[in-house]
């Protein structure tokens, strides 16, 4: 399937291994990525906090660019960041709720020849895997089941709340998709307190201690539940959980050392790719130094 692909900023900035691993797994899942190169940052909630109309206009422009690709054969817009999903869905909710407001925003876009039409479908890779490709199909493509790998899911707030806005209901348990996917890939889901909590990243510059304590506690809870690694669909969570992990350990006063994988990395591993080509070497807590992939995962495939 062809998708209008919005990678977000951080996947091309401080977590290049996310963008890289997405590019690696796409062909293995028959996803054709048409990257929205001219689009801008979603604002991550911060621009909306500063000037709501500005955030809505920037995202309406991204949606309009995606709709051009959809007119050219892409099936929908896809992103790989929980924060993008949440921030963009919030803007979309306002844009779709009011025709006068949408007209007002479109008047700004008109100078560029762009127009946003109500009702774009914008799905995170996680939702796309479950709802468009289907877990049965994903299971068929697994080459190296994640046998004996204990994985702690970590969603990121923006992709699980508020449930009504994000379309989470009994028929679409999007706040359970990570668990379903881990099982599909042959791994073991680790149930722990932090899976749906906040990583603390949004306040890292404002209340650093509280921010790092959030990250440290969540990682610590995953350790206490005997997780081998965590997996997150959000690169901003990854920054606090992995990049800041040494400082988070200091904030909570305990040793941590928990590898945190991006969603496409976990998928890639199960689809048969090697840790190195998935960018595992770029993590602060290197997954390869903590988990012996050659015995726990790779050997199981042989």
């Amino acid at each position: 399937m062809k998708v209008a692909y919005w990678p977000g900023c951080v996947s091309r900035g401080f977590t290049p291994e996310l963008h890289g691993s997405m590019a690696k797994i796409a062909p293995l899942l028959d996803i054709e990525l048409v990257q929205l190169d001219r689009a801008s940052c979603c604002g991550a909630g911060v621009i909306a906090e500063h000037d709501q109309e500005l955030a809505d206009t920037l995202n309406a422009r991204t949606f309009a660019l995606a709709q051009q690709e959809i007119a050219n054969g892409a099936e929908l817009m896809m992103n790989i960041c929980s924060t993008c999903q949440g921030a963009q869905t919030e803007c979309q909710q306002r844009l779709d709720a009011s025709t006068p407001y949408r007209d007002h925003v479109n008047a700004t876009l008109a100078d560029e020849g762009l127009r946003y039409e109500r009702g774009i479908t914008n799905k995170h890779l996680l939702w796309l895997l479950v709802e468009e490709i289907g877990l049965d199909e994903v299971a068929r493509r697994v080459k190296r089941p994640l046998t004996n790998l204990r994985v702690g899911p970590f969603y990121g707030c923006y992709i699980v709340r508020p449930t009504a806005r994000l379309g989470i209901d009994d028929a679409h348990p999007r706040d359970r998709y990570l668990e379903l996917l881990i099982e599909t890939l042959g791994g073991t889901v680790v149930d722990y307190a932090g899976s749906h909590k906040c990583c603390g990243f949004p306040i890292i510059t404002m209340n650093k201690e509280a921010s790092l304590k959030q990250a440290g506690r969540n990682v610590g809870d995953a350790i206490d539940a005997n997780a081998d690694c965590m997996v997150t669909p959000c690169p901003l969570c990854h920054l606090n959980l992995d990049l800041q992990q040494p400082l988070a350990a200091r904030a909570v006063g305990r040793e941590l050392g928990m590898p945190v994988l991006h969603l496409p990395q976990l998928l890639g591993l199960a689809l048969g790719l090697e840790p190195k080509e998935l960018g595992f070497g770029k993590h602060v807590v290197k997954p390869s130094t903590v988990i012996d992939w050659s015995t726990s995962v790779v050997a199981a495939a042989a």
């Binding site: 000037d51 500005l54 009011s98």
Partner: peptide, 30 residues
Amino acid sequence: KAPPEVKRIFKQVHDAESSYELNLYVTGVE
């Protein structure tokens, strides 16, 4: 670098004197 279109949106919307702040609690969803 930000494309010129993005810079224009910042100029036009951010630097405007007033901002259209839609409040769905007040307006409701059509």
